[in-house]
Simulated scan of single mutants.
Amino acid sequence: MNSRILLFSILIILTITIAPITVYGETWNVRIPAGSAEIDAPAHYLPTEISIRPGDKVEWGNADTVTHTVTSGSLELGLTGIFDSGFMDPGSRYTVMFEKNLGETKYFCKLHPWMIGIVNVVELEPGFQVFHNVGSDVSKSPIDVPYKVGRNLVSIDVDTVRKSLTFSFVGKINNDEFVAYLPDALIKNPQSVWINDKQTTNYQTTKENDITILAMTLGDYVQQVKVVGTEVIGKANPKEHVLVNQINGVLGKKFYEHDDEIKISGIIQNPVQLYEISLEVISPKGVTVFHKDIPLINSTKFSETVSTTGVLREFGEYQAKITGESAKSLFLKFEYGIAPKEFQSPLKQMKSGIDASNVMCNEGFELLMKISNGKAVCLNESTATIMLQRGWADYF
């Protein structure tokens, strides 16, 4: 072969061999949901914590109606300078690629600093994420659980009495593949699996060293998967688990007037042989003015309406008491009387010409001045305390 042709061929081979190959990772989506600007919103970033591989991207989308930022750091850490989206108006998106540095990166919104999220960069199999610190409420040595699922996994709860793990999901995806790596340190010998409180055999388990791999397909209706074993992480506190039936309930509102209807509704968690509950309404003097037994027919939910007319005869604080067999009584407090005057929002009052310092707040709310613009805000006690402590508000 001609020496020049040979040399040219070798150069081509070397070029192909050493040429960098760009590998694009997966893109993970994090949503800023509507209402996330509120301190007590159910979710500020969804999901709040996400685990990705080196080379993956995270894309944040602002689905709220107000402007936010996605900024690395926190109130405690300060600005870490890794990334900053700047102001993200409603509907806008922001993407960051996370390369070789493994570990945890916290981020927050500079406009609403209580909004906090976490990105974990870890070595994962394709399609897998990690749910961190499972069992932290029952053990000082919580476990990270690698998993794969299409819908959002929002919690993994450990029940030390029933020796079970409960995976709770949000979203509807039919034929959704769910795989979870369950270390023996978290749960030993998984023996049964339940879908939405019904036992199923449509799952597979394999054992690799000290890890059980659970695999199953979820229908679009699945909201919970419970795995029961012979032992789970942590120890039960007998004082917390004496009662089996747990009664949870709410009132339609906290203040009632004449001719109002009091709506009481709730649900029984972990029901065992509970077929009936009793509802009492107790007057400010401690007298039972209403009583009714409510049957639970093929349901763990209950709802009852009580008219104030002819039942509540004196103004003051009443209690709705709900009891059941092997259950701690639930007491729900409410007021009966003449409703206090309802004031317009601070914004409407200021637009009508009222000075910010003279704005009137409804009962249970406190008047503060927002530092950023000097305008009046009416806040409940807990929110007012946070705003004052963090220097976001002050008194007029």
Rank of each mutant, 00 (worst) to 15 (best):
R4I: 07
L6Q: 06
L7K: 10
L14R: 04
I21N: 07
V23I: 12
G25T: 15
G25A: 15
T27A: 12
W28K: 15
W28V: 12
N29K: 11
P33M: 13
I39H: 09
A43L: 07
L46H: 01
I52D: 00
P54Y: 05
G55E: 02
D56M: 13
K57A: 12
W60C: 04
T67H: 00
T67L: 00
T67S: 00
G73Y: 01
L79V: 13
L79M: 13
T80I: 00
I82P: 15
I82F: 13
S85I: 04
F87L: 09
M88A: 07
D89M: 10
T95F: 06
K100A: 08
G103A: 08
T105Y: 15
T105G: 08
Y107W: 03
W114G: 03
I118K: 12
L124S: 12
L124N: 14
Q129V: 06
N133S: 14
S136D: 06
D137C: 02
K140P: 09
S141R: 12
S141C: 10
Y147E: 03
Y147G: 04
V149H: 08
N152W: 15
N152M: 14
D157H: 04
G171Y: 08
K172G: 10
K172E: 05
A180P: 03
D184I: 05
D184V: 06
I187Q: 01
N189K: 12
Q191F: 00
W194Y: 02
T201W: 02
Q204T: 14
D210N: 12
L218P: 12
D220F: 15
D220Y: 15
Y221P: 01
V227T: 02
G234I: 07
E240W: 14
H241E: 02
H241T: 07
N245T: 07
N245I: 10
I247H: 14
G252Q: 09
K253A: 10
E257C: 06
H258F: 03
E261T: 09
K263H: 05
I268C: 13
N270T: 11
V272M: 09
L274T: 07
L274Q: 02
E280S: 14
I282L: 08
P284Y: 01
K285T: 10
G286S: 02
F290A: 04
F290D: 03
H291I: 12
I294N: 02
S299E: 10
S299G: 14
S299L: 03
S299M: 11
T300N: 13
S303L: 08
V306H: 00
T308L: 01
Y318V: 14
Y318F: 12
A320N: 15
K321W: 04
I322D: 06
S329I: 14
F331I: 14
E342Q: 13
E342A: 08
P346A: 14
M350D: 00
S352H: 00
A356T: 05
S357F: 09
N358C: 01
C361N: 13
E366S: 10
M369P: 00
N373T: 01
N373Q: 04
K375M: 05
C378Q: 10
N380P: 01
G391L: 10
F396Q: 08
